[in-house]
């Protein structure tokens, strides 16, 4: 199967994709974009999160064929050249990154939240990140990072 889509603003055309592959597999293994992580493959952990036509989805639960013609944004597409996004900066500053495995998913989920709600309450941050698992940080620093980024982006 052939898959045509736009990833991080760049048109991509991949041949030889198997029908049974997920969007996550295509991104990681065929497009060499390892930012989205492969962990549970069942929608439980959020480490594979990407934007599909503007919506935050678990790319492990999107079949390759379902991404035909779609616009996809992965963590690799968030920074502007070498300039990290405010969320990326805030994650580093606050120590919200330890092993980093969960980080792309958390940052994209937080990015989505801040687009919907520029000044979220702690409860809103927790709810928006409820689909993401982190085994290292204990979440407190992650929530702090989102708070810091939100403050900076609104002032």
């Amino acid at each position: 199967m052939r898959l045509e889509c736009v990833v991080n603003g760049e048109p991509r055309d991949v041949a030889g994709v198997r029908e049974s592959e997920s969007l996550l597999q295509v991104l990681r293994e065929r497009m060499k974009l390892p930012g989205a992580k492969n962990a549970c493959e069942q929608g439980e952990c959020g480490s594979c999160s990407v934007f599909l036509d503007g919506k935050l989805v678990c790319s492990c639960l999107v079949l390759a064929g379902q991404a035909e013609g779609a616009e996809i944004v992965t963590i690799e597409g968030l920074a502007d050249g070498d300039a990290l996004s405010p969320l990326q900066e805030a994650f580093i500053e606050t120590g919200a990154v330890q092993c980093g495995f969960c980080t792309p998913g958390f940052i994209l989920a937080a990015h989505d939240l801040l687009q919907r709600q520029p000044s979220p309450s702690d409860a809103e941050i927790r709810e928006a990140l409820a689909g993401n698992l982190c085994r290292c940080t204990g979440y407190a620093k992650i929530i702090e990072a989102v708070r810091v980024a939100a403050d900076r982006m609104t002032t």
Partner: peptide, 9 residues
């Protein structure tokens, strides 16, 4: 129903 990225899809 599930969490946010489940509900978008």
């Amino acid at each position: 129903v599930g969490h946010y990225p489940i509900r978008t899809r």
